[in-house]
Design a protein around this nucleic acid. Structure first.
Length: 287
DNA sequence: ATTCAGGAAGTAG
DNA sequence: CTACTTCCTGAA
């Protein structure tokens, strides 16, 4: 009886998720829309969502319900998270606009490569690169899909084997980073667990990983909910709403705003601000 | 229809 | 401050 109520609780939480905003909003890049649902990966397993008109009868296949909850941080109480971050009026508006947006928890290696692909690329392009890496170099599953290629596999390739996937200058960084990991020079396990800035420093030892990509990986692997990546969009949000002076703020000044305005859930606030500002202002000419 | 400049979840030198 | 790859968009 207790099992049944937790099961219904899990389904209720999943029913609130805004799938487009969460799965295609620039956190994760492995999800593809299928007929009335989604096809993607959780913890290296191929999974799928089959939605129906009736939200209660949605099916979640490929891993158990706790796995789904864990992927979307649904074991946390999002009502109280919203209450907490809504103290900021701009975050409040973003949460009102996209109440079903959730944070994902992707595998660290896949997440790292996704963001090594990301510089100067729009989200749909990153998704294409992600799936090219899978189909070119990932082990096939029985169902005909492809795993994300491991560090060892990518390290064993030539840089040109990555170039042919149209990764451009990103190919070198991905190849060099894969080699650092495959030969044990760099270990995810050495990541400091309770010190965000030290964790950023550790990730930045990898070629091609700067401050922005480091914080993306820390946030979208679920490792540090306080990580707030500053990219062109969050730079615009912060400058637009929190910077009162005329001149353009320096990066350090934007970081100070983040420290001052957002607390330990800064990363959660960031996903709402980012998604809301980007969907509102993308392709509209700044006045 | 075709070309071309400008810009896109940045980092390294 | 600039180069770096590729792709897409809009103006001519």
């Amino acid at each position: 009886v207790a099992d049944r109520s937790t099961l219904e609780d899990a389904r209720a939480k999943l029913a609130q998720v805004d799938w487009v905003a969460t799965l295609r909003g620039g956190q994760t890049f492995c999800w593809q829309p299928i007929d009335r649902g989604w096809s993607g990966w959780i913890g290296g397993r191929p999974v799928s969502i089959h939605l129906d008109r009736d939200k209660d009868s949605a099916r979640f296949q490929g891993c158990d319900l706790p796995g789904w909850l864990n992927y979307l941080h649904l074991e946390m109480d999002w009502e109280s998270i919203h209450r907490s971050i809504r103290e900021d009026p701009h975050v409040a508006e973003a949460v009102r606009a996209f109440p079903g947006l959730r944070l994902v928890r992707d595998p660290w290696w896949e997440c790292l490569v996704n963001f090594l692909c990301s510089p100067l690329k729009p989200i749909p392009q990153i998704e294409i690169l992600h799936h090219r890496l899978r189909s070119a170099y990932g082990l096939p599953t029985p169902s005909g899909r492809h795993q994300f290629p491991s560090p060892g596999v990518l390290a064993s390739l030539q840089e040109d084997d990555l170039r042919i996937l149209k990764l451009g200058y990103r190919a070198k960084f991905i190849h060099q980073t894969a080699r650092c990991i495959a030969n044990g020079t760099w270990q995810w396990e050495d990541l400091p667990k309770d010190d965000l800035e030290a964790a950023v420093t550790h990730l930045r030892k990898l070629p091609g990983v700067g401050d922005k990509i480091a914080r993306c990986v820390l946030l979208y692997t679920g490792s540090y909910l306080g990580a707030f990546p500053i990219d062109v969009w969050t730079e615009r949000v912060l400058t637009d709403f929190y910077w009162k002076r005329k001149r353009k703020p320096k990066l350090g000044e934007l970081e100070a705003i983040v420290r001052h305005e957002f607390g330990p859930l800064a990363g959660i606030a960031q996903i709402y601000l980012f998604h809301w500002y980007r969907t509102t202002y993308a392709h509209s000419t700044p006045d």
